[in-house]
């Protein structure tokens, strides 16, 4: 069963329509449209890239490369997906490519096991005064693939079908990755609580 667009779809459709119009102009070499396109997506795109790389300079490089790709390929966009899906897909693969070239970032490191941990400590942690600090620590410890899916689901609020198209994998894989990310967060938070206690 495929999921649909979020409840605030009217706003997002409007964004998409704007982006499609801009892309058409960019395809004809309109630099002002390109600047508008940049301003429309720059912040969200940078944040997404940075969530995977955790390096502002490299994230800015990839943002630049991604938008140059938009300039070169704008006329090949066929509208089979939302513009944001197409754009984030380009950024995702450029980021993954950069990570492959960097030896200091393991692509899929096991920072901590993904075994389920439903202990009440994890829940209690969220009610503690330091919950923000704990959660930020554990979010940074997630695998890079989990970070990407979580960023797309919780910051961009995308449906799993659209995330699957961005990262080019089956929809079930997106749901499973998100499930494992949640389990890993619980496990990490439980460990943190143990360490504090």
């Amino acid at each position: 069963m495929k999921n649909t667009t979020p409840p605030n779809a009217s706003e997002k459709i409007s964004d998409n329509e704007t982006a499609v119009l801009l892309l058409e102009k960019i395809g004809k070499g309109n630099e002002q449209a390109f600047a508008d396109f940049y301003r429309l997506f720059e912040k969200r795109l940078f944040r997404f890239i940075k969530s995977k790389l955790n390096d502002s300079f490299e994230a800015a490089d990839i943002l630049n490369e991604t938008l140059l790709e938009v300039w070169r390929k704008a006329d090949s966009f066929e509208g089979r997906s939302k513009v944001s899906t197409w754009l984030f897909g380009i950024a995702y693969y450029k980021t993954v490519d950069r990570m492959r070239k960097r030896t200091d970032i393991p692509m899929d490191e096991e920072n901590f096991p993904e075994t389920a941990d439903d202990s009440p400590d994890a829940m209690a942690c969220l009610l503690s005064a330091e919950r923000g600090e704990h959660i930020r620590y554990c979010l940074e410890k997630l695998k890079s693939v989990q970070k990407a899916v979580m960023e797309l689901a919780f910051f961009q609020d995308l449906p799993y079908g659209e995330i699957a198209r961005i990262v080019d994998c089956p929809e079930n894989t997106v749901k499973t990755r998100m499930f494992h990310a949640k389990q890993a967060m619980k496990h990490c938070l439980s460990s943190r609580m143990g360490a504090d206690g």
Partner: peptide, 20 residues
């Protein structure tokens, strides 16, 4: 809670007009 924290997470300033 997790979603709220992800949304609050500071990923630093984007390049903005300098990047353009």
């Amino acid at each position: 809670q997790l979603r709220a924290e992800v949304r609050d997470l500071d990923r630093g300033n984007s390049p903005g007009e300098f990047g353009l």
